[in-house]
């Protein structure tokens, strides 16, 4: 039984689905950030698998830059979240509906 590229891509898709469900389900902003991390990790697995099975380093390079983006996203996002929490005392998405459309 050999593990092929399709196995890894299916796994990547499953993890991406879990992340998407989390993004749509969560109302707490911190939990929403967790779901976005899952999305980024799922794409990383896909990139690394394609790099391995096509014998190319470009996929791993993209995975590195995605990790860098994820790190900076966490830094800025948590900073904004702390500012919002100091101002309102809650980090729920429902109280952020300031515009009445």
């Amino acid at each position: 039984m050999e593990i092929t590229l399709a196995h890894y891509l299916v796994l990547s898709g499953v993890l991406f689905a879990i992340g998407l469900i989390g993004v749509m389900r969560r109302k707490n902003l911190l939990m929403l950030f967790f779901a976005t991390e899952i999305l980024l990790n799922a794409t990383n697995i896909g990139f690394a698998a394609i790099a391995h099975f096509h014998n190319d380093l470009t996929g791993q390079m993209f995975a590195f830059f995605i990790i860098a983006i994820a790190a900076s996203e966490v830094a800025v996002g948590l900073g904004l979240l702390i500012v919002w929490y100091k101002r309102t005392g809650k980090i729920d998405l429902d109280i952020m509906t300031s515009m009445r459309g």
């Binding site: 890894y8 950030f33 990383n44």
Partner: peptide, 30 residues
């Protein structure tokens, strides 16, 4: 998975950056 795929450096970076830095930052933020 990264170690299985032959991307050793990526696996190490994943452990250091994600579980070391990002998770610590989240724990700090929580």
């Amino acid at each position: 998975f990264f170690f299985m795929l032959g991307a050793d450096f990526l696996g190490v970076v994943q452990i250091i950056v994600y579980t070391g830095a990002v998770m610590a930052l989240y724990a700090f933020g929580m």
